[in-house]
Amino acid sequence: MFQFIASHYNYWIVIFLMMAGFYIVVSRGNLVKKIVGLNIFQVSVFLLYISIGKVAGGTAPILTGKPELFSNPLPHVLILTAIVVGVATTALGLALVVRIREVYGSIEEADIQAANEAMEQEDVKAAQ
């Protein structure tokens, strides 16, 4: 049993990070913290990919001509792409937060929701 847990330690880390990140996204009201959570969530996936690609005893996949054992390079490449996507998402998310701060004067979800609801009520009233 212990053997099983220990030999899969990379998965436990991934699962922990994943849950932690997801929890932050769901539970935090601060818009920036949500994005931090999102990042942790995404990073856990990066780790998952990279740890899958690791071959025990393998080195970096650089072809030297000699028969060598090396890790699977494909997950690395994939994750490079995913990191780019992640960075873009984070940048966009933060930019949105800045704009939200400008027009709402707050980055707390509750405040924004209250402001939106007030506007909605006005809309309903105006439409009658």
Binding site: L31, K34, L38, L92, L96, V97, R99, I100, Y104
Partner: peptide, 9 residues
């Protein structure tokens, strides 16, 4: 803006 943010998350 807030709609877009929610959508993003």
């Amino acid at each position: 803006l807030s709609a877009s943010y929610t959508y993003l998350i």
